[in-house]
Each structure stands twice: as C-alpha cells, then as structure tokens.
Write a protein that binds this DNA or RNA. Structure first.
Lengths: 154, 154
DNA sequence: TTTTGCGTTCGAATAATTTCCGAAATCCAT
DNA sequence: ATGGATTTCGGAAATTATTCGAACGCAAAA
C-alpha cells in the first residue's frame, strides 16, 4: 500500500537530506514527533523506496581525482545490442559517476572522475572509442564546482 | 597535521561509500580493526575534511521532479560582479543540484530538477535569462539515468 | 457507533557509541 | 642499531541510542 507523502514526511526527508547521520531522537525533536513514531515513518519511507540510499561524500582531490569531466557521446545505429553493451560498460566503470540518456545533439552524457589527462586519454581510447556504434565523443573539463549536492528541494 | 590516506583508510572509505549507515562495530569487522580504532580513524577522516558529508538520496519521481535537465550557459563580459552574482544565485536555488564552471563553448553547466516543462520555462526566464552577462542558454533533458552515484573509485 | 489509522507514553532489552588508558608498533634523528 | 617521541591499537567501562511491544487516546471515515 503506497502512501502519499505528507508534510511530516517532508520535514523528515529534509532533515535527513541535511544530515543523514542525525540520531533518531534528534530527528524526532526536529519534526515534533515521538522517537517511535519518527522511527516508524522513516522505516516506511525506506521500505517504500522513497528513501533510496545513504551515501558518504568524499573529497575528490584527497583521493587524487583532479579531473572532473563531462563526456558527450553520439551513437549512430541504435542497435539494441550496442546500446545494451554500452550501458552495461559504463555502469561497470567506477570512474563513471553518472550516465544520462539525453535529448539533443549527443545521446549520452557521462560524468567521469580521473586522476590526470593521461588517464583521461586512456579512458576515452580504451573504454569509449572502441565501442561499436559510438560515432562522436566530446569532452568538457570542469575547473570549478560552484555547487554540488544531491538534496532535492523540499 | 594532515595525514596521508593509507590502505586501511581506503577500506574504511570504501565501506562507508557502499553503506553510509553501517554501524561502527560492523565497519570494524569489515576492515579488521577494533571498534575504537575504527572510530578514531573515522573521526579523523571527518575532521580532516576527507569525509565531506553524509547524504540521503531520495526518489526524485516520488517528490514530483519529473524533469532532470542540463542547462548550458554562456556569458560574455567576464565581469567580476556578474560572475559573483551568477554563482551566488545558482547556489541559492534549490532546484540547482550542481553547477560546474567548464571549458568549451559554454561557461557553466547546471544540473537542475524540475516538476514539469512549465517550471522549466519559468526557471529559465526568471532565474537565468534575466541575469546580466548571460548571452546564451541551451537546455538538454535527460530521459533516462543509466547510472547515478557519488561513490569514487577506491 | 464502530472501525481504522496514527500518534503517544512507558518500559525494558539490546545494541551501538564514545572515552580512557596501558601496551604495542612506528618513526626519526643521532 | 638505540633511544625517545608519537601514533595507533585493543579491551573495558560508561554513556547513549535503538528497537521492540503494550496499553491507550483521538479524530476522521465507514
């Protein structure tokens, strides 16, 4: 039975987005509910798949990933197998943080982290150019993250 | 005093990236360390800023954000004030999840979530076109997230 | 009115976090 | 290598949080 998200749920989600590590008692105070009711709601939101996951954000530079790139990919024949293979490949590559199927001149946008330009070259040549149906690749490098969050408006 | 990241730290970070909610005792088992040593290490990584934050990922669709767009923005005069104002604005807008300063034809890439095309129009007209120095805007819509993570390779 | 759905409080058993301290390991300059 | 300073560790103990169940109130819908 899928429930609608009410205003208490929104408060709860907002608090969790700001700090995923908040203790249940503090979360309860924050949304003016008892700890037990808070706990029940949270478990419900988790089991309904509204809360998808809890992630830890790590400093990219500290791990040596100096490059953040957006790589645009165009494909010609929209062969089912080629698409499947392409999607499977990018999903498995840990350097690929995101892959979106998009409208416009290119078919996919990849967000990729790499240590240096040599790794970038290696990544494109070995993992992208070699795939069938890939016709065009364009790369853009970020030289400043003005904003970076996963928190949705609430 | 900033420490280097050793192999135990890497294991710890990897485990936290896979599951930010893991209990300290389980994390300790996972990396073959006592709970207290694990705790000390984790706190150190947090205070050194290597662990940046813990985020909760929420289902976009469940909150009604049907549109995920990439908006490209070109600016002409690179006036300091205009840049500052632009960056301040996008940082404050909750619909903007990411904003990257990039190389190439456009100056910025924005990742934005919106409920519908009407909101998209409103967002562009009210929050982007109206800003000084913005010369060109291009929008691309995602119609499928093949991959989405914040986990860095470890 | 009766049912249903939530929420509340309370208690209690578990379980996890956090601190403290002595011991071991590591590092570094001599 | 030796000695001394520093860091990191493990184990125990103290503190705090989670996770249940049970009994009950309240308000809205059937």
């Amino acid at each position: 039975m899928v429930k609608l998200i009410d205003s208490t749920d929104r408060q709860l989600l907002k608090a969790l987005q700001e700090n995923a590590q908040i203790a249940n008692v503090d979360l309860a105070k924050r949304i003016n509910l008892s700890p037990s009711a808070t706990h029940t709601r949270r478990k419900r939101l988790e089991s309904e798949g509204i809360i998808l996951s809890y992630e830890t954000t790590i400093d990219r530079q500290a791990l040596g990933y100096d490059l953040l790139c957006f790589i645009y990919i165009a494909m010609n024949a929209h062969q089912r197998d080629d698409i499947t293979q392409f999607q499977h490949n990018v999903t498995c590559l840990p350097e690929v943080l995101e892959c979106h199927h998009v409208t416009g001149e290119y078919d996919y946008i990849l967000k990729v982290v790499l240590k240096n330009t040599n790794d970038l070259k290696h990544f494109i040549v070995e993992h992208l150019s070699s795939l069938p149906s890939v016709t065009r690749i364009q790369t853009t490098v970020s030289y400043g993250e003005v904003k970076q969050t996963t928190a949705l408006p609430l």
